[in-house]
Simulated scan of single mutants.
Amino acid sequence: MEDLTLVIGNRNYSSWSLRAWLALAHADVEFETVLLPLDTPQFFERIGEYSSSGRVPVLWHDGVCIWDSLAIGEYVNEQFASGGLWPEDSASRAMGRSMASEMHSSFIALRNALPMNIRASRVVRLDEATQSDINRVFTLWADARAAHADVGPFLLGQYTLLDAMFAPVVSRFKTYDIALPDDLEDYGKAVLADTAMVQWTAEALQETDIVDADEAGEPRE
């Protein structure tokens, strides 16, 4: 293995891989990417070479294995970004880490009903649980933006690990035509226009593999 290697799934579908990749991209560090196509024999044959978790993403650095997106983000922040992927202000860091942890552990209905699918333009009928998750996301974003609007366009003003954690959700809202409240439209645009996100999206659009489980809903007219 190279000194710094990130193992990911399909860029089109793997939201957790995207989060880890964005952390590395924003740390401005060179790394190798290994892609294992999801739900394929190749994935199940090779994932054990990288992690006993059986999941992506996985980061290897000089013999150290980190196998969880949030843990990878924190490791990258410490090792390569001199702490700059969180704000200097302790209150803002606390808010960011709380929100990132909630994203990490919650929103199951949203994830299941609206899987990340960058190439698609689809529509899904929202049930009560999914709409509740969406509303909660909007509340979190609005609270963060209200506290940091004078700093910059992202949730905590500057781009942080919190934006990496929510970037797949912004992508989902685009795929499934979920309208953002007026006061959050600029945030959604900033995430999608981020240079690293643009690169990931462009590469996702070149993929051709289909993961049937993530092709939710029907094509939009």
Rank of each mutant, 00 (worst) to 15 (best):
residue 91 A to Q: 10
residue 145 R to H: 01
residue 123 V to N: 06
residue 121 S to R: 14
residue 92 S to D: 00
residue 149 A to P: 07
residue 93 R to H: 01
residue 131 Q to K: 09
residue 72 I to F: 09
residue 120 A to G: 05
residue 92 S to Y: 00
residue 181 P to A: 11
residue 150 D to S: 15
residue 104 H to S: 02
residue 59 L to F: 03
residue 146 A to Q: 11
residue 173 F to T: 08
residue 58 V to L: 08
residue 109 A to L: 00
residue 141 W to M: 11
residue 113 A to D: 08
residue 100 A to S: 12
residue 84 G to A: 12
residue 90 S to Y: 12
residue 142 A to D: 00
residue 105 S to T: 09
residue 61 H to P: 03
residue 98 S to L: 08
residue 129 A to E: 14
residue 130 T to K: 04
residue 113 A to E: 04
residue 145 R to P: 00
residue 64 V to C: 08
residue 71 A to N: 13
residue 110 L to Y: 10
residue 145 R to D: 00
residue 127 D to M: 11
residue 124 V to I: 08
residue 79 Q to V: 14
residue 137 V to E: 03
residue 135 N to P: 08
residue 72 I to H: 05
residue 62 D to I: 11
residue 175 T to N: 06
residue 66 I to V: 15
residue 94 A to R: 06
residue 168 P to K: 03
residue 160 T to C: 04
residue 127 D to P: 02
residue 59 L to V: 05
residue 79 Q to Y: 05
residue 69 S to L: 09
residue 104 H to C: 01
residue 75 Y to D: 02
residue 168 P to M: 05
residue 67 W to T: 14
residue 159 Y to P: 02
residue 70 L to S: 08
residue 137 V to R: 03
residue 59 L to S: 01
residue 164 A to I: 13
residue 120 A to P: 08
residue 158 Q to A: 15
residue 101 S to M: 07
residue 139 T to V: 14
residue 84 G to L: 10
residue 158 Q to I: 12
residue 166 F to A: 07
residue 94 A to Q: 07
residue 152 G to T: 15
residue 98 S to M: 11
residue 98 S to Q: 11
residue 99 M to D: 03
residue 135 N to G: 15
residue 172 R to Q: 15
residue 58 V to Y: 09
residue 97 R to V: 12
residue 98 S to C: 07
residue 82 S to F: 05
residue 176 Y to C: 02
residue 111 R to M: 11
residue 149 A to F: 12
residue 153 P to C: 08
residue 133 D to V: 07
residue 76 V to I: 11
residue 146 A to F: 05
